Amino acid sequence: MIVNATDLKNNLGKYLRAVEREDVIITSNGRKIAKLTVYTEEYAADPALTNETVKEKAEAYSLFPREATFEEFLQLSEHGEDRYEYIDGVIYFLATPKTTHQQVLGELFGNFYNWFSGKKCRPLLAPYDITLKRNAENINIVQPDLMVICDLEDKLNEKDSYMGVPSLLVEILSESSRGKDAVKKLDLYMSTGVKEYWIVNPFNREVTLFLFENNDVLKNTTYKNNETVSSYIFEGLKVDLKSIF
Score class of each variant (00 low, 15 high):
I2P: 03
V3Q: 00
L8S: 00
N10W: 06
N11D: 13
L12Y: 06
L12M: 05
K14C: 05
L16D: 01
R17N: 13
A18P: 14
A18W: 01
V19E: 07
E20V: 06
R21H: 08
E22W: 01
E22L: 05
E22C: 07
V24Y: 02
T27E: 02
S28L: 10
I33Y: 09
L36G: 00
T40L: 03
Y43D: 15
L49V: 11
E52S: 09
T53G: 11
K55A: 12
A58M: 12
E59T: 12
E59R: 13
T69V: 09
T69K: 00
F70Y: 12
E71Q: 09
L74H: 10
Q75T: 14
L76C: 09
S77G: 13
G80C: 03
E81D: 14
E81G: 05
D82I: 08
Y84M: 01
E85H: 01
E85N: 00
I87W: 09
I87F: 01
Y92W: 12
F93G: 08
H101Y: 00
H101K: 09
Q102H: 12
Q103P: 03
G110L: 09
N111M: 10
Y113V: 13
N114K: 15
N114H: 09
W115E: 01
F116N: 04
F116T: 04
G118L: 06
K120I: 11
R122I: 15
P123G: 15
L124K: 15
D129T: 06
I130N: 06
T131W: 08
L132M: 01
R134T: 15
N135P: 02
N135M: 02
A136D: 14
N140T: 12
N140A: 00
V142L: 06
P144L: 04
V148S: 07
I149K: 05
C150Q: 00
C150H: 04
E153T: 13
D154L: 03
N157A: 02
K159M: 14
K159Y: 09
D160H: 12
D160W: 04
S161I: 15
S161C: 08
Y162I: 00
M163L: 03
G164V: 02
L169Y: 10
E171D: 08
L173M: 12
S176R: 11
S177P: 02
R178V: 15
G179K: 02
K180P: 05
A182H: 05
A182P: 03
K184Q: 15
K184G: 12
D187N: 14
S191R: 07
V194L: 10
K195F: 04
Y197N: 09
W198F: 01
W198C: 14
I199Y: 02
I199S: 03
V200S: 07
N201E: 07
N201C: 02
P202G: 05
F203T: 11
F203R: 03
R205M: 12
N215T: 08
K219L: 07
N220Q: 06
N220K: 06
T222P: 07
N226T: 03
E227Q: 03
E227V: 08
E227F: 00
E227K: 06
I233Q: 03
G236T: 01
D240F: 08
K242G: 15
I244E: 05
F245R: 01
